[in-house]
Design a protein around this nucleic acid. Structure first.
Lengths: 208, 208
DNA sequence: GCTCAATCTTTACATTGTATAGATTTCGGG
DNA sequence: CCCGAAATCTATACAATGTAAAGATTGAGC
């Protein structure tokens, strides 16, 4: 089975982007386990060694996809909503975090597999931090801090708590630890029942 | 480089257990990325195909190791301690969870990689549930429920919250998301500072 | 228009998981 | 005791993977 390289011109034109798109598509269709560097190259109609020139290695390509993933995650968290209490906002953001993880499990799992990524890539670290910003802002409001106040120790602990709780929930869900339900019904049940209940247990809404 | 199979007798004697031990040792020494089925076979001085007869596949062997991991995790959580408030006990158990993850990262990561395990193995599921029991017991006490009371919805939400928080913390730590510190100092800092602060933010100790 | 660097292919290699078939040993029933 | 069958392990083989090395092709700047 020869590698399909039926292309009109020798040069691809925009191989770098094509490989990133191909990888993202594979993650969506077959999950992280379904990804291989050669598979991505096939999908972009280039030879197995072509990706190396643009990304150095498999980890280089995956790092680019992970960066896009963190940016997309930030967008899922930072959704606009009605005027609401800080705790309600925190819950909506937490739901956004988990909704992203369940909707794009391949992307999400990749983003935290630092054995597959260029661990000390500055842009990756920056993108990762980016996703934390909206949560941090809400926590500050929840603690009654003024806008743009410095993040002190209690606030930082609370941010870590919120992040860990939703991340742990998402990761446990994707690891199959909540799976007594059918796969289709599960996502909705997780988002509509389990997650709100958990968040309510951690940050009770005053008017309840 | 031939596979080393210098053994006095044709049969190994206790290959099944030897392979489990070899795998666990590899996880400890080189992490989960360092594991290969052939490597485990080499370490047990048998041929590459020998494991298949005892475990069917790589996932079969790893599942056995994961089961042991969950049992060991349960032991790390269920440590005896001085008489204390339920919140204090919950924090000690949470610290046990995270301490296990940081001390045995290879094991811990494996336990939640259901792409590497026999996902619907009953014994694995049981071992996984086992680790949740001590936490559930403490939550019941924290909510003022009588001993051996049924777990109602609020309790279940709280258990999920505690589990998710410590699991998320551990997973984020192992994914390198807290890594501004040197690797040696990090574990202690995480366990002595960050984690207690986070748990204190979620379950404040009355006398503080 | 020429040169050179960028881009991509070809080929090759070590390594992996595991399927298949054969060798060796153990063990229980006559 | 012994002998056939089952259990256990080896040998061989194969398709796939990541990527290194060397060669082919193209485009961009002078």
């Amino acid at each position: 089975m020869a590698e399909e390289t039926d292309r009109e011109s020798y040069h691809h034109g925009d191989l770098r982007d094509a490989l990133i798109q191909a990888t993202d598509a594979i993650l969506a269709e077959r999950g992280l386990e379904g990804f291989t560097l050669r598979g991505a190259a096939r999908r972009a109609h280039v030879s197995p060694a072509a990706p190396a020139h643009h990304f150095g290695s498999s980890a280089g390509l995956l790092t680019e996809v992970a960066i896009l993933g963190f940016q997309e995650l930030a967008r899922h968290i930072d959704i606009e909503g009605p005027a609401e209490s800080p705790t309600a906002r925190l819950k909506r953001q937490g739901a956004g975090y988990v909704r992203f993880a369940l909707a794009y499990p391949g992307r999400f799992q990749l983003m935290f597999r630092h054995d597959l990524l260029l661990a000390d890539d500055a842009r990756l670290a920056a993108a990762s931090e980016l996703a934390k910003v909206p949560i941090a802002r809400t926590i500050q409001a929840l603690l009654g801090r003024p806008e743009n106040a410095e993040i002190d120790a209690p606030a930082s602990a609370m941010i870590l708590a919120a992040w860990s709780a939703v991340h742990g929930f998402a990761h446990l869900a994707l690891s199959g630890k909540f799976s007594r339900l059918t796969p289709e019904a599960r996502s909705q049940h997780l988002l509509d029942e389990l997650l709100p209940d958990m968040l309510e247990a951690l940050w009770p809404e005053p008017g309840r």
